[in-house]
Amino acid sequence: MSEEQIRSLERQFEARIARDEKIEPKDWMPEKYRQTHIRQMSQHAHSEIVGMLPEANWITRAPSLRRKVALLAKVQDEAGHGLYLYSAAETLGISREEMYEQLHTGKAKYSSIFNYPTLTWADMGAIGWLVDGAAIINQVPLCNTSFGPYARAMVRVCKEESFHQRQGYEIMLKLCNGTPEQKDMAQDALNRWWWPSLMMLGPTDEASVHTEQSMKWKLKRKTNDELRQQFIDQTVPQADILGLTIPDPDLKWNEERGSYDFGVINWDEFWQVVKGHGPMNKERMKARVNAWEGGEWVRDAAMAFAEKQRERREKQVV
């Protein structure tokens, strides 16, 4: 194809997206669109899969059966969300094994928030409330993104996600209405998860390199800073109901803007964690690689069994 032809195809392509038409896997698409989507969807999938680890840490120690079944269901949902997203990414021609390979070698990133440790039961509350809360804000606009398989996966993810946030908030509520020690535990969890949750919504607009292109392709509907403001504005009143204090001395209602002003985010910490120097980066990768390598004989055995069954059936036919 000549460059002129490609430019013309690209113009038609951008026009389709501008008209809110969906792009399906076999449609012509610019190489950059394909690569960007493979990157974003696979990293989204990795985040769901790695995101199971901090919570799995507390399943066996959940304080009641009610909490345990809820946490199990939540972690199982995250596995499901990872699978929806991996298979959506596979429609663009990357294999599941390649994606795992990229995760395990550190070539692909996942959400930095999962590189923080879960020290107490209250962290299960804080994660559901704040981390899933921030994730929902990030994900809801993706239900209308331009790539069909991604949008469809996100519709399912978003439907399931709201239970996650509510179960987390309920844990916080229970702790806050409990003994002083329990309330302290909830406050401590909020103190540790608040800032990483704000960072989860991505670098500031000035530092974000992909925003403009992502807006055009509807991978983004609002900028990181807009989403962060939305998250803060909706979360502060929820903290008030719990009777907890947001660990930000500069947090203040701004009557004029109709929003909360907030303090400076420690972006050095964010980039350190992104680059692999967070408290749990190495643990998380080790757990994933172990699961993959330790499960190899199971995958092989299942395949061998399936082949044997097939051969047996074929012989019977003869």
Binding site: A73, Q76, D77, G80, L83, Y84, S87, A88, E90, R96, R152, A153, E160, R299, A302, M303, F305, A306, Q309, R310
Partner: peptide, 21 residues
């Protein structure tokens, strides 16, 4: 949607867990 499985029976079982929770 889609998923990976060794054979049809496993695909059914996985589909139940992935798509009909």
């Amino acid at each position: 949607g889609s998923l990976h499985a060794a054979d049809a029976e496993m695909a059914l079982e996985n589909a139940r867990d992935v798509y009909t929770r």
